[in-house]
């Protein structure tokens, strides 16, 4: 009852303050004059009642600044609260869920199916699959990616996971290291991704034959069948375009906005960039787990291909028949 009375009192007094929306430009000027007229009227009717003035203090209302600083004239910056709720709410929860569930799904898949084995006997004849530079670019990207993923996840979830274990001081040390490493390795990663895009894009162009792979995907993934494909199959192309190219671009641009706050970005820009970066990076990491699995323990011979650049002819025939034909012809 008491609370209800309080509620009403406060509502009557205050709904008027917060009713006004923030305005900009010319409209704001005329509105400001209107408000000051209102205020003068109000003062005669109800001395000391400032409601018309405070309407301009509504969240994100712009007030001409008297002190230096890009946003010195903003009294209340409301989007910060929105940012906090998105970041601490769905992004943390769904992101955390993703990072826990994806490895579990992969582990279960591995336990049920085991790795994709070669069906035929290795021929002993080796075919060059990746050039020296392709491997350099791939591994530079991979290493910088893992460093960024680990430091990023550490900074994002460390508060919940690591502080209870290693304490505030210990974690602060890790976080400071992570932040600096993340800031420096980030631009390097963008460079690597750009190189990778230039180097791998042509072979990753979508071809009609790739639909065959998509149709037979369940059989191919469980090792029960094969689908003809070029140098890269549909899944690899999906990872390239959706992961490396698209997520790389999204995470890269938002990352640069956050990494270089030297260009007078506003807090609002940074908040959006932060959410985009977080969501993009978490999706990127989840997808990369699939790629890492298929490239290492998931497929026999795949890791050696990227390690040494050479694959066995049988492997090439079973996984990338069309590519082998091209190479041979």
């Amino acid at each position: 009852m008491k609370r209800r009375a309080l509620f009403l009192t406060a509502w009557l007094g205050l709904s008027s303050i917060l009713g006004g929306a923030s305005m900009t430009g010319v409209a704001a000027n005329s509105a400001a004059n209107h408000q000051s007229d209102m205020q003068v009227m109000r003062q005669t009717e109800q001395p000391q009642n400032n409601a018309p003035v405070w309407r301009r203090y509504a969240p994100d209302g712009n007030i001409p600044p008297r002190q230096p600083g890009a946003r010195a004239g903003v009294l209340i910056q409301a989007s910060g609260e929105t940012w906090r709720q998105i970041r601490n709410g769905p992004v943390t929860l769904i992101g955390g869920l993703l990072l826990i569930l994806v490895p579990i799904v992969i582990a279960v898949f591995y336990a049920l199916n085991g790795p994709l084995k070669l069906h035929g006997q290795p021929s002993g004849r080796l075919v060059q699959r990746f050039t020296y530079w392709e491997r350099i670019i791939h591994w530079s990207t991979a290493i910088t990616f893992v460093v960024l993923a680990v430091t990023g996840v550490l900074m994002f979830f460390g508060r919940y996971v690591l502080i209870p274990i290693i304490g505030y001081t210990g974690f602060s040390w890790f976080a400071a290291l992570s932040k600096n490493v993340h800031n420096i390795v980030g631009p390097l990663f963008i460079f690597c991704v750009a190189c990778m895009f230039v180097m791998f894009a042509r072979e990753n162009l979508w071809r009609r034959i790739d639909w065959e792979w998509v149709k037979k995907a369940p059989q191919v993934l469980t090792g029960k069948g094969h689908a003809p494909s070029g140098k890269y199959n549909a899944a690899e192309k999906g990872w390239f375009w959706g992961g490396v190219a698209l997520l790389g671009l999204v995470v890269g641009i938002s990352g640069l906005i956050l990494d270089f706050p030297n260009f007078a970005q506003t807090r609002e820009t940074m908040q959006i960039a932060n959410i985009v970066h977080g969501v993009g990076a978490l999706l990127f990491i989840a997808a990369s787990l699939g790629h890492i699995y298929m490239g290492t323990i998931g497929t026999e011979g795949a890791y050696e291909a990227m390690r040494t650049g050479k694959v066995d002819e049988t492997w090439a025939k079973e996984h990338h028949a069309l590519w082998l034909d091209e190479v041979k012809s």
């Binding site: 406060a10 509502w11 969240p59 609260e81």
Partner: peptide
């Protein structure tokens, strides 16, 4: 309190809630 108004939903008189 104005900044925290969103938490209470659009319909609620922000300050009081």
């Amino acid at each position: 309190f104005a900044a925290k108004a969103r938490k209470c939903g659009a319909g609620a008189p922000p300050m009081a809630s």
